[in-house]
Design a protein around this nucleic acid. Structure first.
Lengths: 231, 231
DNA sequence: CGGCCTGTTATGTCTAGACATAATCATATC
DNA sequence: GATATGATTATGTCTAGACATAACAGGCCG
């Protein structure tokens, strides 16, 4: 364990235990330098990482203070369905329903009018049967390689994630009743509760892909492991 | 802008643009030192932050490499329902249904047998009507103040977040049909698709609270804004 | 050929000191 | 009394150099 890590963990545990409550002024850097017998840069490194974790705030001249808990934020892992389903139920398979090249005409899910888009729908299967329905658009003006990819062999999600860098994304998670079409493919009655994840992905401001995934509520859920309030 | 930030942004944009693809060996630290005319510690700081963001990997002797995109992870904001509902629909109100002190007997949602727990159920109301049902347990052995808190005035979630530090949490997000009891309180037919969030929170290994929140699917969804794969 | 040792190299961490910046406090001036 | 000024102080960032560590490459020897 490095010195900086040791300092960080020391402070962290004092905050977690409540010994240093929100608003408490932690010792000045030069005091910590004396306490740990190290250079100020090392103390600074520990404090910087605590700021990044949202545990403290540093104010010039005033000192560093234990942060007030703010909004809870979770780091939600949204893995490749490929990997996730393989891990949970085993026997992953992607069934390609449709793959057609279209020109966007400004529909609700579409890119800007005139964009060349690859429209793909398919089903993610686990061992016990269908798990999710996917309806995806890929901007082939931005991702020309997508034209030649074979999505009957590899799900478009895992293909994209390994070949196309992206910088921004947005998710919407909601509960819906299965539509007639989705219900038929997922082998459930129409109206069955399903988890719906809509995702839009950009690279440097340019839209790359948008996808609507509908999960059988009884076969899938999202797990978020947590770190306390970042920022 | 600091020198370290400038270096970081330079490298980031070369990765995002695809100029430096996954697996590419970025210039050695000593080369970057020459290029930017700064100290190695400054280059190191920039690279360290890129590692934290998951954009590169550093290997001793070999150099630093652009990381292969891995698992997508989102930073999912799970705010106080109080604040979230106020912001979206206005007119937030928490209706306390039940608040009783119990001893845990190792049920499915419970703490370890013998723990003193405060069992609270209630409804979160927005302007347009009920939004969510909440069923919560609070470990009063760990949070004795909860005994005296008035949860008809303040929802237990916002009370806890502002008074009790925590170090770990776990979320499970799924879609379910509303149970008869929940349906009655949310003013919807039984079986209506609802978003269910289960959360367990710990402080240094000791369980603090667990909660099951059931949202009307048509009145609420979760939004996650994104940064590419953070470790 | 295979295993061991050694030198080289690039990252990882740290030191001691420097200057910049911003916030605060006390003082001096209007 | 209100406002401007300057000293003080703590953080923010940086430098130049040092040593530690891990991994690789090559040579030596059984």
């Amino acid at each position: 364990m490095t010195i900086a890590e040791r300092i960080r963990i020391d402070i962290e545990s004092r905050i977690a235990s409540g010994a240093w409550p929100p608003g408490y002024r932690i010792p000045f850097e030069h005091e910590l330098v004396v306490e740990y017998g190290c250079a100020r840069a090392t103390v600074g490194k520990a404090l910087t990482s605590l700021v990044q974790a949202g545990l403290i705030e540093r104010r010039r001249k005033a000192g560093s203070f234990v942060a007030y808990p703010h909004v809870q934020t979770a780091v939600l892992a949204i893995p490749d369905l490929d990997a996730a389903i393989s891990e949970r139920t085993g026997g992953y398979r992607f069934e390609l329903l449709k793959s057609s090249l279209e020109t966007a005409d400004d529909g609700p899910q579409d890119f800007a009018a005139g964009t060349n888009q690859l429209h793909i729908t398919g089903i993610h299967h686990g061992k016990g049967g269908p798990v999710a329905h996917e309806d995806r658009l890929i901007n082939v003006d931005q991702v020309p390689d997508a034209r030649d990819a074979d999505f009957s062999a590899q799900a478009p999600g895992s293909w994209l994630v390994s070949f196309v860098p992206w910088t921004e994304a947005r998710h919407l998670i909601s509960a819906v009743g299965a539509s007639a079409e989705v219900a038929a493919h997922l082998d459930i009655p129409k109206g069955t509760p399903c988890l719906m994840v809509e995702r839009w992905t950009w690279r440097s401001g340019a839209p790359i892909t948008s996808v609507i995934q509908t999960f059988r509520g009884d076969r899938f859920d999202l797990v978020a492991t947590f770190a306390p309030e970042k920022r």
